[in-house]
């Protein structure tokens, strides 16, 4: 029993899934701890959604195991697993009211009616939809449907909640509101969240840890700050944040745009910093910051982001064609593994 208590909520070992000849998931190992907000981040076709479906039980793996709290559920159907899913298209039952949708799981599990009613009300309150119980899904906005889907899953108090790009269909403003909302709900209910998204901002904003997927494999797992500031592969550096890669002495290095300083004329570079010279080729004024594309004398180019503390758009745009010196601290310069190295290591 002590062992079971220590077991992570989700443990995947050597998970593989093939669709015909195509390898969708290619040897995924991961552990998700209790109460963690864990995000699987990657482009479409990287295997993140398939991995989620393998955890839910909608797909059977060709190899590997799925353990939930130490229990091997690899061969179990979805209805025998203590997880619930929020689908990208919400999958609300159109012929049922909001209340009936949320109560569905409890009804199937034969929870007595009075308890069912209280729990449904509670769940609707959690997602701030009290009073909407009588409506049909078709009468709700996209954001409200999303909340109903969330309530329908949460009401069952699963060990793990699986979310498949739940905010993908919402517009930007609503998405940002829901990100904060989801985080609040996760803190309140204390359920482990496994979240799938292709949106790096979403992943960085909400997660305790992020797993970056590429071509069916995990390239890196770590807290958002670590993945962002210390990407271990070229793919991660490019996918999480702006790709800012240089070839120097036969190695690939990455520097985040906001870590680079443009020296003004007469500025003395920091003796410990790395300095390169180049020419500003493009200037993109983006409100809060300006992005400069600088072509370097030693080859390659970098994007530099500068906060618009005193600069106006006119001043920023004037800089095009100017030669500049760039400096960054050596600890912000990361040497990356190429894919080949990763595979052998």
């Amino acid at each position: 029993m002590a062992e079971a208590a220590a077991a992570p909520d989700v443990r995947l070992r050597g998970l593989r899934k093939l669709y015909g000849e195509v390898v969708a998931v290619d040897g995924v190992d991961l552990d998700v701890g209790r109460g963690e907000f864990f995000t699987m981040l990657g482009p479409s076709g990287s295997g993140k959604t398939t991995t989620l479906r393998l955890i839910a039980g909608f797909e059977r793996p060709d190899a590997g195991t799925v353990l939930l709290r130490g229990l091997d559920v690899t061969g179990e159907p979805p209805y025998a697993r203590e997880v619930n899913t929020v689908f990208q298209d919400y999958a609300l039952f159109p012929h049922m009211s909001v209340e009936e949708n949320v109560a569905y799981g409890l009804k199937i599990r034969r929870v007595p009616r009075p308890e069912r009613r209280t729990r449904v009300e509670q769940a609707l309150a959690t997602v701030r939809l009290s009073g909407y119980g009588g409506r049909r899904p078709a009468q709700l906005s996209g954001g409200q449907r999303q909340r109903v889907a969330l309530a329908r899953a949460l009401v069952n108090q699963p060990q793990v909640l699986l979310l498949d790009e739940p905010l993908g269909a919402l517009d930007l403003k609503l998405r940002q509101e829901m990100q904060i909302e989801l985080k609040r709900i996760q803190r309140e209910v204390g359920i482990t969240f496994v979240y799938v998204t292709h949106d790096q901002d979403e992943a960085l904003t909400m997660s305790d840890r992020v797993a970056v997927f590429n071509e069916g494999r995990i390239e890196q797992i770590g807290p958002p700050a670590e993945v962002y500031e210390h990407p271990v592969t070229e793919f991660v550096a490019g996918f999480v944040g702006v790709s800012n890669l240089l070839e120097r002495n036969g190695r690939t290095i990455s520097v985040r745009p906001e870590k680079i300083r443009i020296l003004r004329e007469g500025d003395r570079p920091d003796p410990t910093a790395h300095v390169e010279t180049g020419t500003i080729r493009e200037v993109v004024y983006a409100g809060m910051a300006t992005r400069y594309l600088v072509e370097l004398e030693d080859g390659g180019s970098l994007t530099v982001a500068v906060q618009n503390l005193e600069t106006t758009s006119a001043q920023a745009l004037e800089a095009r064609g100017r030669s500049v010196r760039l400096e960054w601290r050596p600890e912000h310069m990361l040497t990356l593994e190429t894919r080949g190295e990763k595979e052998h290591g």
Partner: peptide, 27 residues
């Protein structure tokens, strides 16, 4: 009709027959 409806039903604990009775058949 989205196959996700039936998956959602299974996900919420319904076996194949319950899913047919409560979700597929009404659709």
């Amino acid at each position: 009709t989205s196959q996700h409806l039936e998956e959602a039903s299974a996900d919420l604990g319904a076996d194949a027959w319950q899913t047919f009775r409560h979700i597929t058949f009404p659709q």
